[in-house]
Simulated scan of single mutants.
Amino acid sequence: MPLPFVKMHAHGDDFIIVDRRGQDDPITAPIARRLGNRHTGIGFNQLAVVLDCEDAAARVKFWNADGTPLAACGSATRGVAERLMHETGSHSIVLRTDRGLLTCVRESGRRVSVNMGEPSLDWASVPLAGAMDTRTLAIAGDPAACSMGNPHCTYFVHDMAAVDVAVAGPALETHPLFPARTNVHFVQVLDRGQIRLRIWERGGGVPLGSGSCCCAAVVNGIRRGLLDATVQVLCDGGTLTVQWDGQGGVVLTGSVEPIMQGSAYLY
């Protein structure tokens, strides 16, 4: 069975979109894992399945490359929005994800903004293994934590060059404090409106960027009193903008670009 897909990226954070509106959803954990393999599959950081929805333009489900589901993906959400806005000729669209209804807006060029919803800041919703202040976790390095629909842990460092993300990330992802594992960020604050960010992604390794990680890193920086409400986030693959007023939804803005389209085979 051929499975049509489109592959896109957002500053190097690559994802595929499978449009199943009007059709069944064939994606399972084993299929997502096989398609995500960069040697024997298509290869991606995330997979987005676009489905029919009664109260939005579409419902979007997300999978990691290791076959685990996730509730939020800022890059793929913007990619789906860009394609559907192009399809309808509109400049805004509402998508339903496990985070709820997300409003997306076309900006200049190929830039798309998405309101990713309010961050979850209490320990149980991250989730953490026990009650504590999520602004300063009781583990080495004093990181902060929050959820953007998936768990995030943010370390603030003085010198990004001194951090080996590929070594530090895996141990922190599976730390006992995080029963659902966690994304791990390393943030160097350049000034109140700009940070350097590197990421260990839960189930995905070291990506060039991640929309939800950018959001969570900025949220945690603002909660620590280190950042202003609008922040430029310098990832390995490019720069995104995150805005948060400390109470409402987190708005993520950045470019999305098509790479290829084709068909995969489901056995």
Rank of each mutant, 00 (worst) to 15 (best):
R78T: 04
L208Y: 10
M148G: 02
V94K: 13
V189E: 05
G211F: 03
A166T: 08
E107H: 15
M116G: 12
A124H: 15
I195H: 00
S120N: 08
T174N: 13
T182V: 12
C146K: 06
R96K: 15
I199N: 10
E82Q: 09
A140N: 12
L208E: 15
D164M: 03
A217M: 04
V206R: 08
V112G: 04
R106Y: 10
P176W: 11
P170N: 05
L101E: 02
E82H: 03
A131M: 06
M148Y: 03
A168W: 02
E107S: 11
P143C: 04
H152Q: 08
L190F: 00
A131R: 06
S75Y: 01
N115Y: 07
A161D: 13
L101P: 10
V163I: 15
A144I: 04
R78D: 02
M160Q: 06
A162S: 13
E107I: 02
H175E: 00
V112T: 14
G209L: 07
A145W: 11
T88I: 02
G204C: 15
V94L: 00
T88Y: 05
G100T: 00
N150C: 03
R202C: 07
L121M: 14
V218Y: 09
G211L: 06
P179K: 13
P170I: 09
A144L: 04
S113Q: 15
C153Q: 04
V105T: 15
V206S: 06
S92V: 05
N150G: 04
L84G: 03
V114S: 13
V206T: 14
V126W: 14
L197C: 12
L190G: 05
V165R: 02
V157F: 00
A217T: 09
D164V: 07
G211H: 07
S210D: 05
S212D: 04
G205N: 11
G109P: 11
E173H: 07
L137N: 01
I199W: 11
G209A: 15
A131P: 01
V218D: 10
R99K: 13
G117V: 05
H175M: 00
R78M: 01
P127T: 08
C213H: 05
A81N: 06
T154R: 00
G149P: 03
V163N: 02
L137V: 03
L84Y: 10
V206E: 14
N150E: 04
L197A: 13
P143W: 02
W123R: 08
D159Q: 09
C104Y: 12
E82L: 05
R96A: 14
G130W: 08
I139F: 02
F156L: 03
V218N: 10
I139S: 08
G193M: 07
V126M: 13
Q188W: 03
A76Y: 04
L95Y: 06
I195W: 07
I195Q: 04
G130P: 01
S210P: 04
V165K: 02
L95T: 11
L84E: 07
Q188R: 15
R99A: 15
I139N: 09
A180S: 14
L208P: 00
H185I: 00
V189M: 00
M85A: 06
V157Q: 03
F186N: 02
V126Y: 13
T174I: 07
C104M: 10
F186D: 01
H158R: 07
T182L: 02
Q194E: 14
T136V: 14
L190P: 09
